[in-house]
């Protein structure tokens, strides 16, 4: 038990030490869209833009879809992934 208490004490001491001099460092994690970063989330497109122009999307959408068989076959990266991925040795619950 003592070793666990010590472990927790030392973990918290490390965390508290982090806070010294940088207490406000992480106050606003949504608020730093500076520069031209393209990282995920920094300038993610809002999904409601088409909503207005909607009609916009109407113009872009192709003619109605027959449920073509080829649309049910995954293309893209899956082609190189499919056979290689390995299921875990023992199935989980």
């Amino acid at each position: 038990m003592n070793s666990k208490r010590n472990l927790i004490r030392s973990a918290l001491a490390g965390v508290i030490a982090l806070g010294v001099g940088s207490a406000a460092a992480q106050a606003h994690d949504g608020a730093a869209p500076a520069g031209k970063e393209k990282c995920y989330g920094i300038a993610k497109k809002g999904q409601n833009d088409c909503g207005t122009a909607t009609h916009a999307c109407a113009g872009l959408a192709k003619r109605d879809n027959q449920p073509d068989e080829w649309k049910l076959v995954a293309k893209g990266t899956c082609e190189k992934l499919g056979g290689k991925l390995k299921a875990p040795a023992a199935p989980k619950k």
Binding site: A31, P33, A43, K44, D49, T52
Partner: peptide, 19 residues
């Protein structure tokens, strides 16, 4: 802007708009 795009509780989109 389209109001709904900024309905989030927080995050970068709102931060941009406030800026």
């Amino acid at each position: 802007v389209h109001s709904e795009n900024y309905f989030a509780d927080g995050g970068p989109a709102l931060a941009w708009l406030e800026r």
